[in-house]
Amino acid sequence: MEKNTKHLPVQHIIGFLLSIVLTLLAVWAALGSDLPVKWIIIAIMVLAVIQAGIQLFMFMHMTESASGGGHVPWNMMFHGFVLAAIVVAGSLFTMSFGFTHDHDGDHSGHGSHQEEQQMHD
C-alpha cells in the first residue's frame, strides 16, 4: 500500500460539516423559524436536494469516472430512485384511497365516496 493515503480527506470533512449544518438548518426551519408552513416545507425540500447532492458528489463516486478510477453506479442509483418513488407514491396511494383523515368521526369518507359508488355499480 502506498503511503499517500495519509493526508487529510479534506473533501470528506467539508462534506460532513456541510451535511450537519444543513440538517441543523432544517431543524431550525421546522422548530425555530416563523416561516409559514408552506415555506417551511419548500425550504426543507430544497435542503434535502442539496443534501443529496453533497452525498453524491462529495462522498459517493459521482466524480470518480472523470479521474479514471471507477465508474458511476448508475444501476444502484436507478434502483434507489425507484424505491424512493415506491415509498412515496405507494404511501400516498394506500393512505389516501378510501380513507378520510378528518376528525369529525365521519367514516363514510368524502373523497372516496364516488369511487366506491362506481365500484358497487
Partner: peptide, 14 residues
C-alpha cells in the same frame, strides 16, 4: 406490503 393491513380500511382499489 399492503397485504398485511387489508383490513385497516383502505378502498377496494388499493
Amino acid at each position: 406490503w399492503v397485504h398485511h393491513f387489508f383490513t385497516m380500511g383502505a378502498g377496494a382499489l388499493v
